[in-house]
Amino acid sequence: MKTLEELMAIRNKMQGQVNLRAEDGSAVRVVVGMATCGIAAGARPVLNAFAEGVQEKGLKDVMVTQTGCIGLCQYEPIVEVIEPGKEKVTYIKMTAEKVAEVIEQHLIGGDVVKKYTISTELK
């Protein structure tokens, strides 16, 4: 069984050197809809892909978080990317594959993946 001693070791290693994430509003927020509608539509693998991808790429100023239903259930899984000082980007009908593109192009490259945004899909 995994023991708490290991956690103790992690803490000792991290303490002091943990660059506590900027809570001053400079972080990019990735918000995944996780209400009944989102979960039923497959938000779980989407959230997982973001959490793992962000960790893998070492994107320290990206915060992956969740929210409830925003009333557009037919477009779930929905993901909002909120960058300080920019207009919110809403991606719809997301999958784990699309997440990889969003991480690469948007979160790292800074270019919105327009083909998956709500404004493009609804045209």
Partner: peptide
Amino acid sequence: ILGDVPFNVPE
């Protein structure tokens, strides 16, 4: 155990 080290740091 963790004190001020948050749950969402990768380790």
